[in-house]
Amino acid sequence: MEWRKLLLLVAILALAQLAQAQSTKYGVGRTPTPEEIRAWDISIGPDGKELPPGHGTAAEGAKLFREKQCVVCHGSTGSGGPAPTLIKSDGTKKSKYPCLVPCVDDALVMSLHAQYATTMWDYINRAMPLNKQGTLKPDEVYSLVAFLLFKNGVIAENQVLDPETLPRVKMPNRDHAALAPEWKHAAPRLQGYP
């Protein structure tokens, strides 16, 4: 009988330890409601699974590009303004504005350099327009992304972007970007360098 009691004790202890591992350790903070998480969560990953319902086209985007005052900072042709270049220029005009650091010029235009169109949707939605962040409706964001992708020659003028089609846009730089190797504790940033 003694060994059974011991076994029971061991089992109880193991269960208790398991329960403790699964419960919060400090019990500080509260659980947000699903509505709170939805309201806060503006991250759009490369799969586009967080994209909200909606759709947009380049034609709509062209109108919004003027109406939403994008031209004031980005230039009427999407280049040459004080803010990052959005539409690759023909290279004949030099901007009078010094480029931001880091400099988003023709070489780094988002439509051409980003691996995923979701990066554009995410950023326009979270950070534009200046001083009116968070006011764009999903349809407007889809349209602005479509406009910029069309003007940079990535998609056709009539392509409709929505939660299904936007993540599938084949971005020119998709296969030309390399991720850093897996990060490891106390390892040199690049073995063998210099």
């Binding site: 991250s43 759009i44 990953g45 490369p46 880091p102 988003v104 780094l108 988002m110 350099h113 980003a114 691996q115 995923y116 979701t118 990066t119 995410d122 950023y123 950070a127 991720l179």
Partner: peptide, 9 residues
């Protein structure tokens, strides 16, 4: 990697 604006740059 979620490839945010800062990551893409």
């Amino acid at each position: 990697d979620y490839m945010t604006y800062n990551d893409y740059g």
